[in-house]
Write a protein that binds this DNA or RNA. Sequence first.
DNA 1: CTGAAAGCGCTAACAT
DNA 2: ATGTTAGCGCTTTCAG
Lengths: 353, 353
Amino acid sequence: MTARSRPEGARAGQATLHDVARLAGVSIKTVSEVVNRTGRVTPATTARVESAVAALAYQPNLSARRLRRGTTGVIGLAVPELSMSGYFNELSALIVRAAAARGLTVLIEQTDGTREGELRALSGPRRSVMDGLLLNATALDEQDLADRLPLPPTVVLGERRLGAGLDHVTFRNEEAARLVAEHLVGLGRRRILVLGGDPTTSASAARRLDGHRAALEAAGLPFDPELVRDVGLWDHDAGHAAVVRARRDGLRFDAVAAVNDSIAIGALRALHDEGVAVPDEVAVAGIDDIVDARFTFPRLTTVDPRRDELAERAVRALTERIADPTRPAVVQEIEGYLRVRGSTLAGADRRDP
Amino acid sequence: MTARSRPEGARAGQATLHDVARLAGVSIKTVSEVVNRTGRVTPATTARVESAVAALAYQPNLSARRLRRGTTGVIGLAVPELSMSGYFNELSALIVRAAAARGLTVLIEQTDGTREGELRALSGPRRSVMDGLLLNATALDEQDLADRLPLPPTVVLGERRLGAGLDHVTFRNEEAARLVAEHLVGLGRRRILVLGGDPTTSASAARRLDGHRAALEAAGLPFDPELVRDVGLWDHDAGHAAVVRARRDGLRFDAVAAVNDSIAIGALRALHDEGVAVPDEVAVAGIDDIVDARFTFPRLTTVDPRRDELAERAVRALTERIADPTRPAVVQEIEGYLRVRGSTLAGADRRDP
DNA sequence: CTGAAAGCGCTAACAT
DNA sequence: ATGTTAGCGCTTTCAG
């Protein structure tokens, strides 16, 4: 009479709580409590259950657990892209690891750094399979978020400081840009070409520009808007094209401060192509300290954003937000370290690998 | 009297099949059939159900579906590493995309290229949450697999050709190495330093070496085992160290054929550090065509392994294997294209970006 | 072509 | 401290 239809999926043959309970001679509730370390079970029973678990190689069925608990065990990670800049793949690898340590699976979504892509991650259909979202927002503005309140558990990463009472784990961009500019100014550079996004639409670009200007100001140097260029996508090709264009425009500069390492690497390439000596004629610096920054010619001066710290804190903030949706929003800022190499300081590479 | 305990998880408030059925005035079975496009439902009913689905913004609960179907909707991807070589992050991004197109989530696992890591991916505890596994094996041997038969759905990627009746999607390594060697020989290079893994333990290294030897043989050139070096990890640092060591050993060579681009980039860096002109004194080539290969000094000659094709075929092979565990194993080989750039041919860069 | 109902494996309220 | 049991949302057999 039963509508018997044992699904023969991937887990066919797996032991269940019932099997373990039968073998251990206890009820499934007891097994569940032992497995989840919840409730009080006597040590003797616990031991019996545990040996039954081991004997049957029992693995909890996550689908069932999640169905019951109402969660999915999946968190989303929305980043602009994965395969271009070197930054986001390194960050993603760290986040995947940090999440795995908490039993969470990461669903990676690429937004292409567009408002549409970010909105899709924020409230598209895939959102329904996630317990929470780590959103590296670059194009969204505060109004976009305000329109969608209350949001499911969301932690904003990266540059953008969005209000709306959201948790943030941000890298101190202003600081990073300031470190770079101070370093370049300290080396006697006076005309620093800033390669980044459009400060009127990208808040990250704006904040880095703030840091840059602050450093110039502190040094008593003038700020020339001519020297700020929007490169579009933040990848190698964009950096290359921007430098070629700047030189074609007859712009004079003795340093390049790029908003990330990929742009800086493209810039290095372009300067080399045009026969400009680095760092003698033009010093070049990036931000991110990606692996490749140690293998350019010359090696690239950059800012280490401590991705590991960012990843760890981001996942922790999200799990805490998921556990308690009502707690007040927390903003965490991570400071970077300047790594001086040969692209700004001749001879600095001698100590590097 | 009911043990009421409505879980208030992430999906609280979501519409269910029941809600849709009630609104459409049909049974949940009908809704299920419409949503899954299974069974025959009259167009009129279908339309009614669909508008109810839209009205309630219904999203199927994947945990429930999976519990019922016995599958998880998750496939694993085991790769040596994610953040070093440039190859695996680009490949992973493509695989994540190909899987997402089929409604699958990818769980990425890093094996560090060790036998232990690969065995863990193959039969560790996390395996129980996956419907299938894409395994990029580099250290496992045939016996390891034979010991574990029958395996859950598994597709082997990459270099290693393991027997045991498994599906494979492989890149034609021998061919790739042959292309590189023929190119170098055609340029008049006679002493080609081969940077790769130990051919006695890494089958991939062995096969690339086969291709290399075949090319030398076809050209009537001698093969000098002195010129083959195991670099350890296949990353920038390893390539750098290997070249430094080779030169310290007094080895003479007029070309470097690296088993991947990261090693080649490290080699370029080392040659540059030691004042060796590339390509005049030593030509350098890699395999993988990672993004960075277009931004080295000079740009790196390499082989495009058509990762997009690999990703697409791998995911397809795995879904087919999951759907039909009994079908005969399929082996697919993908051929690469040689990309000639300035690291082997002076002047070749003029056309590149 | 549609409806009713069992039950996937797990958690937790309730009972003992 | 342990047992019993309802039911999470879905798919699917069986009946109509």
